[in-house]
């Protein structure tokens, strides 16, 4: 389980990283936290001519506040997200999700940008950024552009990133009075979820205003449950649960068949609603 040969370069800064990438070609890969990438290379599932290590690029890590948003650098590690006070206050779903990802050693290295760019459909962060209406900031040779999280995840390990485009930051509207929760069902602590949900809403009595219901582990990308969200906005939980029949079309996998995933999706929505109301 040794990776095939590849070349390595350590980028000094963002322009250097982009220049290296251009030099190595489209199949070269960005090495962020490496917690999925290096495993994949070792398994020889992935193959790459070259890795561009951006761990030493300045200003890619850290959380800052600006106006009604917080900005999370792409290289901010899970462990930092779990303890950062700005994240806890303004994007509590991210803070809640971070400790759910694998284990301390993975959290110490793994980065939010890496997780989003990898786009594993069973991962927590992609669903989080969709549910929180985040904007993803990407940098290419032509400059910077912004992609709404809802448009970023195109399919299984597939994103809206163009060739030679690098995710640099995630900007998330401050939660304000909106409440957020992440719930997931895992066989073992730290596992990928059988089914997971991120629920964000403006809780007013029975209604969940502007509800965002986003699932992970039930499709080839984060799945937005629109029907359920509309029902929750009317305060109709049983209609929301019913709406999931149309909202979700989960493929079966090793953790369960489609009907099981659908069933668990209903259970977990109810639990997320309870959690949100209890906040």
């Amino acid at each position: 389980m040794k990776p095939a040969q590849f070349a390595y370069a350590r980028a000094k800064d963002l322009p250097h990283a982009l220049a290296l990438w251009a030099e190595a070609g489209e199949d070269a890969q960005i090495l962020a936290g490496g917690q999925s990438l290096i495993a994949g290379l070792g398994l020889r599932l992935a193959d790459t001519p070259a890795l561009i290590d951006i761990n030493h690029v300045p200003d890619l890590a850290g959380v800052t506040e600006s106006g009604d948003r917080i900005r999370i650098g792409a290289m901010t590690r899970h462990a930092e997200l779990a303890r950062n006070p700005l994240v806890a206050e303004h994007a509590p779903a991210i803070a809640e999700a971070a400790p759910l990802i694998a284990h301390p050693a993975i959290q110490a290295r793994g980065t939010i940008g890496g997780s989003l760019a990898y786009a594993d459909p069973a991962a927590e962060f992609p669903a989080c950024v969709v549910a929180l209406d985040a904007e993803l900031v990407v940098q290419g040779q032509g400059g910077e552009r912004r992609i709404p999280a809802a448009d970023f995840f195109l399919g299984l390990y597939e994103t809206a990133l163009e060739p030679f485009e690098l995710l640099t930051a995630i900007e998330i509207p401050k939660a304000g009075r909106r409440r957020q929760t992440v719930q997931e069902l895992v066989r073992r602590h730290g596992d990928y979820a059988i089914v997971g949900i991120v629920l964000a809403a403006d809780v007013q009595g029975d209604t969940l205003g502007a509800a965002k219901v986003v699932y992970f582990g039930v499709g080839d990308a984060p799945v937005v449950a629109e029907g359920a969200a509309r029902a929750l906005e009317q305060g109709d939980v049983s209609a929301a649960l019913k709406a999931l029949n149309d909202d979700l079309d989960p493929p079966g996998d090793l953790t369960g068949g489609p009907e099981t995933k659908r069933h668990l999706a209903r259970v977990i929505l109810q639990r997320a609603i309870n959690a949100l109301r209890a906040q």
């Binding site: 369960g256 068949g257 009907e259 099981t260």
Partner: peptide, 16 residues
Amino acid sequence: FTPERVLAVLGKVPDP
């Protein structure tokens, strides 16, 4: 005894 198998005998999901 996976969750799916337990749910199946509880009649909540099809038997995998």
